[in-house]
Design a protein around this nucleic acid. Structure first.
Length: 590
RNA sequence: GCGCCCAUAGCUCAGCUGGAUAGAGCGUCUGUCUACGGAACAGAAGGCCGGGGGUUCGAAUCCCUCUGGGCGCACCA
């Protein structure tokens, strides 16, 4: 909203002034309804809405506005069209001025109120495979984090891993039984679900009369939660193994999470009893059917009865409702967050809203603190059912990533044999992983989709590699001109390395789109929708390619060459900066 | 039964909080083919935006309703 170089935003006050001048001061705050247009650079749609209020036909109202509109130096053409649209054609020299003044940079785009925002994302479970569903929350969450940081917010990452609860008795017993250094135990790192399922199978097959595994597992939970030092130590080693698995995935994916961001369910355990006691004493929670529950207003269940949030089970244990409450209190009170984001699957929506409502009731989540559930839509299997790591194994994440890299490798081996083996390996990784991440980032995060192997690994079309390819071509041009460092070395907000002349239609279209960057980034941060950034970058890459086809750079002469090289430089910085905010690398070659 | 989300081209998805003739990609068809890198480009075909009402100067977008999917709804997280 405070971009310094976005034409549409800069025109707003001019239009408002014109409206006030034409119809009186009481209309000064009227929304000018400025929109992009296929018929002009900018479209003003205020006249139709105003027509009735000012008692004029829409076209007449539009004409009055145009009459009063002062856009000297900004627009070269203003005309009324259709039922009352006002079409603005921007002056080429103004576009040129904006583009050369200062490169549209993230730094200049900071939204007014800066927040201290906690982002909860990824949050895998110990001893469970991360599947393509987890991939989505991880990749989307990481991009949101990067964008918010670029906008100037202070971001605190929180990886709320599932490292506590009843399954751990079973897991620990199984681990001890197979031996911590055994091949079976090593599955925790290579194939966690296999480890989990082995433990599960043993648990299910066990009866008190046979080998007593289930009994030992139950006892193990009790001693774990009671703080038995020996059990606790075993548990710690078990969790550490799983962290190695998570980190292996994060490393391959280029996710910015580290062990420092882990704040698992277990870390809240010590506070749960006191938390329940406080809620009960204050009358916010009460016993129902043996369990301690809160009944936040507005939630009803199957029978229309108030829906409970169970915070202490009838057996005295605690579930995720309790830890989630402790978590939210911690984030507000101890981490001083004034905004909390949950990048979590859509099915958790009711649960999270109930937790938030209870936290509000308890005063742990003040009105000034915004809590948002960034819903991640389900990933469905071919059958249209939700993918779960439980039954059977869908596509293993690591295998998917490897396949992505392999496919990219095959392409580059064929197309760029002159590159060294090491170079091709790096590019294949960047491209393959970029394809997978872009596939998850480029659709709305809340819409569910059917998992499609080939779609995720596609290397052509609206994909990460397409955007990367445009950047690689620019690098190639700049390299040949011997000016790579001159253009990519500059600071983020620096002006172009040479004056850009906006002359050809392709140059004009490219320039206009470059000027939209700040507004796009702000929108992404505001709506928490990285797919808008994907769309922006894809279009930028397309516009660059059109320019590339129509406007020779290296063959051009003198100032034209200088200008086009500078334009290439700006586009490259924009492409690679944008990809970086998506968590996608820009290859040197591809 | 209650609640949340969804339905757009053959397929996978956009559509910026109401604007003009609904856009991409894939696939199909036709071209570009000694190039500043073909992981590319130009063009074509393909839609009653699930059905029906309503609000509005104007609806894919907002409201109601029906149909058809997904998910959630008390001790697993």
């Amino acid at each position: 909203m405070n971009s310094v170089n976005n034409p549409a935003e800069m025109v707003v006050p001019r239009v408002q002034a014109a409206i006030a001048h034409a119809f009186g001061d009481e209309f000064r705050d009227t929304d000018p309804v400025i929109r992009p247009s296929q018929f002009a650079d900018i479209q003003v749609n205020a006249a139709m809405a105003l027509a009735r209020n000012v008692g004029l036909p829409p076209r007449e109202a539009a004409a009055r506005i145009v009459e009063a509109l002062d856009v000297d130096g900004l627009c070269s053409l203003v005309e009324v069209s259709g039922p009352g649209f006002i079409n603005l054609t921007l002056d080429g020299s103004w576009i040129q001025e904006l583009l050369n003044a200062s490169e549209p940079a993230g730094d200049a785009a900071r939204p007014a109120p800066l927040h201290r925002v906690v982002v909860d994302y990824s949050s895998p479970n110990v001893a469970k495979e991360m599947h393509v569903g987890h991939l989505r929350t991880t990749v989307v969450g990481d991009s949101i984090v990067r964008v918010l940081e670029a906008l100037g917010h202070t971001v605190i990452r929180q990886n709320h891993i599932g490292d506590w609860g009843t399954p751990f008795g079973m897991l620990i017993e199984h681990w001890l039984e197979v031996g911590e250094d055994s091949p079976d135990a090593a599955l925790l790192i290579d194939d966690p679900s296999a480890f989990y399922q082995a433990a599960r199978a043993k648990f299910d097959a066990s009866t008190p009369e046979t080998d007593g595994f289930a009994t030992r597992a139950r006892l193990r939970v009790v001693s774990l939660q009671a703080g038995d030092p020996e059990t606790f130590a075993v548990w710690q080693r078990l969790v550490a193994q799983s962290k190695r698995y998570f980190n292996a995935i994060y490393t391959v994916l280029g996710i910015s999470l580290t062990d420092d961001h882990i704040a698992g369910e277990s870390s809240y355990d010590a506070h749960l009893a006191q938390l329940c006691q406080e809620l009960e004493e204050r009358g916010i929670a009460r016993i129902s059917e043996g369990a301690l529950c809160t009944f936040p207003a507005g939630f009803t269940g199957r029978d229309g009865d108030p829906l409970p949030l169970i915070i202490r089970k009838s057996d005295g244990g605690y579930g995720y409702g309790t830890t989630d409450l402790a978590t939210i209190r911690y984030r507000v009170r101890d981490l001083s967050a004034d905004r909390v984001l949950y990048v979590v699957g859509a099915p958790q929506n009711v649960h999270l809203r109930m937790v938030m409502a209870t936290a509000r009731d308890a005063g742990w989540l003040p009105d000034a603190v915004e809590a948002t559930h960034v819903q991640i839509g389900n990933v469905l299997g071919e059958d249209g059912k939700i993918l779960k790591s439980r039954a059977g194994n869908p596509v293993k994440l690591m295998a998917l990533l490897q396949e992505a890299v392999d496919r990219a490798r095959a392409v580059i081996d064929a197309s760029r044999p002159e590159l060294s083996d090491a170079e091709r390996a790096v590019t294949a990784r960047q491209v393959g992983i970029g394809a997978v991440k872009y596939a998850d980032l480029s659709t709305g995060h809340d819409t569910e989709y059917v998992f499609d192997f080939d779609r995720m690994l596609a290397l052509t079309g609206n994909t990460g590699p397409y955007v990367q390819y445009a950047a690689a071509r620019i690098r190639s041009i700049l390299r040949k001109a011997g000016e790579l460092d001159r253009h990519v070395g500059a600071a983020a907000g620096a002006a172009p390395a040479a004056t850009i002349a906006v002359v050809e239609p392709a140059e004009r279209a490219l320039a206009l789109h470059l000027l939209e960057y700040d507004a796009t980034l702000q929108k992404v941060g505001e709506l928490l929708e990285p797919h808008r950034l994907c769309a922006y970058l894809f279009e930028l890459a397309q516009l660059f390619t059109a320019f590339y086809e129509q406007c020779p750079v290296l063959k051009a002469e003198d100032t034209v060459r200088e200008s086009r090289l500078a334009l290439c430089g700006v586009v490259l910085r924009r492409l690679s900066g944008g990809l970086d905010l998506l968590g996608i690398e820009t290859p040197e070659n591809m």
